[in-house]
Design a protein around this nucleic acid. Structure first.
Lengths: 351, 351
DNA sequence: GTTCCCACTGGAAACGTTTCCACGTGCTAG
DNA sequence: CTAGCACGTGGAAACGTTTCCAGTGGGAAC
């Protein structure tokens, strides 16, 4: 029960060598076999463990990486985080997690604070990309990898997904299975995902030659949550009733799995069936999608894969800072389940 | 674009004062108004930001707290983590998260590594509590708060929940709503939650005077996942068929929401209805429970509250290490939804 | 006019490492 | 026999802070 932790000085004096030799012996630098033995023995008997802070100060790096996200609780980010944690810890780094929160300046503050030197790199997945954030990211004190889209001219490592194309997959699938009156519950348009998905929807809508006005079949939810999805869907469905009161939509795409769950709730509340009356497609293919009842057809945007790539990109840049900025694109993939395909209803498998 | 970051020496020399004065001026210690002004100006013009590592080394604390858990991806832990992150960051600490993984020695290694001094405290929520882990926790280099149960004699801060009582609530609710043949899908018995819930189930079963053998109505899943829950439920239901093939259970309690989702899948696959033929109760009341369809009746064990308490306990101990070890118990609470109560089926609210 | 105190300051030590540098040794090559 | 080299070592500087300590000056009290 040492009152205070053993330091290298104690080890050195117990081993009867200088601190320099002790350090070398423990770190496998040049040292005679007997020195190594003596030092090892001394270290073991004192229960010596090198101090991470002192080491960091001297070496100039912290062996820590940060992951920043608006809300750690969101399932998409959880999968991403798990993947990042795996990669990062395998390389001997520790992972700092911070919720930047909704406030637009919080993310900026976080990036600025990186110059305190507590982390060697950052993976960030911002919901809203302001120009202030972008410029702050570019002048960040440590390498940054962005998960999400940035203005084209920005030279930063990014990992993206083609979510516009993802919406296209969803539309194509619905058309293929006979739906013609497709609604869209989107998230806030000032978020990067929100605007990308709107573009995707408009494009897909035009491509398949549907006649209706896009704005008539789109409804914007106030955020990416289940409750907001339900509210938006109720409004959307209400807007599309025929004179008889019959609903005129036969499918709804949601910008997000959480929104999609809300949409399903709304549809069921109105006494309609999923997928027979209204098919529903989500996006992100979170773990919950396969668990839900009915299973949620969802466009996988590869959260785990994106997390893994982001972490690997960051590690690569740390070992070679000269690398040109690279951009990895993870292609979306449609996973069909019961919410669009009655035959798949009781698929209890987890993807 | 400074080639190297500005340090306090630069600030001091630009301001024309000593490093000592510069430090004092910036930290609000005694200093003349004009010194403060000069130093502030110099710091601002150089974009000076104090180095976290050097500060930590000198001050002897890292301003970092760690959160360790078997799998960051599990929804229960996610809510816990979110709560911890909120509390901790509000107090100016950063949060390190680490998945200790299934390996039993990983947690031990992690606790040992705390003596490297990279964190000032730890919140840990181990699935399996070995005696080696306990002794390591007791001799840990920094304060530790355990979320979960420990042997009674261990003097450590803990935040617990009475999950045995939680199972009791579930049983009582089912009895009250007319069910008499209640099955139990548990997680692995060598985990702390698993064994506690088994005791709870046995106690409750005896208390209400049900006649059947407990072991006949219990089925152990191989882990706490949806897939395992489904498999276990299929087996359990199969064991309890009458000669006619009719199922003889009218309710199943699962040790975990994920298991419960699996159970519901199994029940539906067999062509039975939830809750009319078989009622299902989960445990943890994760966000998914309210989202699921039907809404899952679940015993809330207050994950977020436990996380918050754990973080606060840790902060309190950091400010006063002499505090006696305290034990906070969060009482379970039953949240009734559609999976046991047909009237609550279309409750779209989020708790 | 002296003494005391107070507010403020700068030099230097310290936190626990790693690493530069100079200094032995003992050897081999010339 | 000496120059050179390889190897191993210890002293000391360095990383960027904070803080102890000993001063400095000026003003108030006697």
């Amino acid at each position: 029960m040492a009152a205070t932790r053993a330091t290298l000085v104690h080890v050195a004096s117990l081993a009867g060598v200088s601190v320099a030799s002790a350090s070398r012996a423990l770190n496998g630098m040049v040292a005679s076999p007997e020195t190594v033995a003596k030092v090892r023995a001394a270290a073991a008997s004192l229960g010596y463990v090198p101090d991470a802070t002192a080491r960091s100060l001297k070496l100039g790096h912290s062996l820590q990486l940060a992951f920043a996200v608006d809300d750690v609780g969101n399932p998409v980010y959880v999968e991403m985080m798990r993947a990042i944690e795996t990669v990062v810890s395998r390389s001997g780094y520790r992972l700092l997690v911070s919720s930047t929160g909704a406030g637009p300046t919080d993310a900026v503050d976080l990036v600025r604070s990186l110059s305190r030197g507590y982390a060697d790199g950052l993976v960030i997945s911002p919901l809203r990309v302001t120009s202030e954030l972008v410029s702050e990211l570019q002048r960040a004190a440590v390498p940054v990898v962005v998960v999400g889209s940035l203005p084209a001219e920005v030279r930063l490592d990014t990992v993206q997904t083609n979510s516009a194309h993802g919406v296209g997959l969803a539309v194509a699938h619905l058309i293929e299975t006979g739906r013609r009156r497709i609604g869209f519950v989107n998230g806030p348009l000032d978020t990067t995902p929100g605007s990308a998905r709107q573009r995707g929807f408009e494009g897909a809508y035009a491509a398949v030659g549907l006649q209706a006005d896009v704005h008539e079949v789109q409804q914007v939810a106030k955020d990416f949550t289940v409750a907001a999805g339900r509210t938006a869907a109720l409004e959307l469905l209400d807007r599309h009733r025929a004179g008889s009161g019959a609903v005129m939509l036969d499918a709804i795409i949601a910008a997000n799995d959480l929104l999609a769950f809300g949409v399903i709730h709304a549809v069921l509340e109105l006494g309609l069936r999923v997928p027979q009356d209204v098919a529903v497609v989500g996006m992100d293919d979170t773990e919950l999608a396969s668990v839900f009842n009915p299973g949620l057809t969802s466009v996988s945007l590869g959260s785990a894969a994106r997390g893994r790539h982001a972490a690997e990109l960051l590690l690569a840049r740390l070992t070679d800072p000269q690398l040109p900025a690279s951009r990895i694109v993870v292609q979306p993939r449609l996973v069909v389940r019961g919410s669009t395909d009655i035959a798949a209803t009781h698929d209890g498998s987890r993807r």
